[in-house]
Design a protein around this nucleic acid. Sequence first.
DNA 1: GACTAGATTGTTAGCGTTAACAATGGAGCC
DNA 2: GGCTCCATTGTTAACGCTAACAATCTAGTC
Lengths: 338, 338
Amino acid sequence: MTSGASSDRQASLTDVAELAGVSHMTVSRVVNGTGPVRAETRAKVMAAITKLDYRPNSAARALVTGRTGVLGVVALDSTLYGPASTLYGIENAAREAGYSVTISSVRAPQRSSISDAVEILRRQAVEGIVVIAPHLAAAEALDAVPKDTPLVAVGGGDAALPVVSVDQYDGARRVTEHLLALGHKTVWHVGGPADWLEARERERAWRDTLKRYDAKTPRVVRGDWSPRSGYEAGRELADAKELTAVFVANDQMALGVLRAFTEAGIRVPNDVHVAGFDDVPEAAYMNPPLTTVRQDFIEVGRRTFRVLAQRISGELEHGRLRDLVAAELIVRESTGPR
Amino acid sequence: MTSGASSDRQASLTDVAELAGVSHMTVSRVVNGTGPVRAETRAKVMAAITKLDYRPNSAARALVTGRTGVLGVVALDSTLYGPASTLYGIENAAREAGYSVTISSVRAPQRSSISDAVEILRRQAVEGIVVIAPHLAAAEALDAVPKDTPLVAVGGGDAALPVVSVDQYDGARRVTEHLLALGHKTVWHVGGPADWLEARERERAWRDTLKRYDAKTPRVVRGDWSPRSGYEAGRELADAKELTAVFVANDQMALGVLRAFTEAGIRVPNDVHVAGFDDVPEAAYMNPPLTTVRQDFIEVGRRTFRVLAQRISGELEHGRLRDLVAAELIVRESTGPR
DNA sequence: GACTAGATTGTTAGCGTTAACAATGGAGCC
DNA sequence: GGCTCCATTGTTAACGCTAACAATCTAGTC
């Protein structure tokens, strides 16, 4: 015997109309706030709505308006701090604007699986799609999506579509310069996977900066973003000669590097300086606290939604566009006084 | 001039039927594989579908069938490793079964905001809802949801609804016993927020175990899951007398504790043993590598979906149910030989 | 060769909503 | 007082799909 609901079927506009003694259109007007309705009538309708616990049928509404109010997000590894935070930012902004967000996560960064994910979302008639997959394969897959589907990418990529991202190049430039400014002859680099666009950008900035300062470029040791791979890279570096400064492409790998150095008896910052990228919540409490580059993922999410909304409304045409969020250098003990 | 598409409007069943020279029902049968269709006819229809790039209108389908094929997930802090992984597991299982997943993340763990999130999802006519919010407020909010909405909770909670979770109690019991077995007189505890059910379970198991072994129970220092709060707890503990072993309620806080101990000159494992909970990817590369309890979040996600699917299909009635995933103790150097 | 059963295809009627237009009523104006 | 205008409410027709039932056709049967 719950709040007045009698039938087991969800109440429809017509049910409400009948109970309130008006036409279903009047109810629709009350529900949507379209068109004028006398206060008295509105009250009757509202009462009926409450009594029947009426809630609009979104499918029927979508069918007739052609708008679903749903956005799709394709995420490559939604388990990582960066993508997860970005997703969170997008979802929040979207919800505030009345959209809901459907996710489609992708296990492997292959062209086909990314296409599949996009296809699944399109079949659900999402109004727009965000792809969080700063990966070469994604860039290719995205080129194949019809141009009339509003699409925005997060993170690197130079496909012919709008991209929102933290300024990877500038961030990496800053850390590298920071390290050089501390007096190091050069800076080593533990890079991310070569097919990740962000890894490329960070590495490119590192190379350019070394060149600009006439420092020689050591060989790059490469990981896969994971702490484990950072650890392995760290062991490899531990044997290197003239190693005094390392820029690691993300904080998780930096943790592994720190661990490897500790095992090898290399003291940070006394013997070697280490810096990361991301500023994950852990960074400030590593041993030692890690100098890194902060990425404001929430802001990225917000802006991504904004751009996507513009694509949906038609304010923005399909085409190349870059919205860069500034990167911030956070200096901590790992590059502190020796 | 793309693949045969002429009109700008999405093709409908009728358009395909017209082109193929059959009725729209025949097309529907081909698309859904319902009812018999002659091979020849099917071929004609398929050709027309391809030519027009037809894709079924999900809103129309949902309207007539009453099924949307959408599940909703409410997540409290989808940025953390645990919830993010669980979400990933759910989404994968759901997609395989033909469902898509809409998320609704919640900033603050308040009863009202959780109700709001659930309400938003219900308004979208999701077929079922998962709530990843092992929080007191969530338990309350969930009690208010109509019993006919298929609902499953992830993580603690003793509300009258199905709950899938890692066996927190057993996990915490294992670490505590592990530490006691190493010869410690007692084990200190850095707990999670008191209003988180998982924090309670872990603490309860710790208390019970100490009692069972006739060890005295030190006061609990409490954090908020973050590395920062772990660091503060660590500083507080550093002054404690007779401190030889600490069980920290999650790995992130454990990192903070380790950092604080290092600063205070307390050596782990030489002076004090430390253990965490979660087995995040970082745990194995902390300084020292962290003994912890592994939670198989992916498995939790999978099982959560399974239970929800049963609720939706009606196989499972609404009511109390617990599906526990076993916890695994992972021993590393932080509780190693001194 | 008519008859039956099953395979194959078609017809019709909604599902719950909004868009477009029509109808009604009262107030203000000359 | 009749007329115009606007506020308010109603009527009708889709939107694209599936369910239910009807119609047609084919092959096998006796």
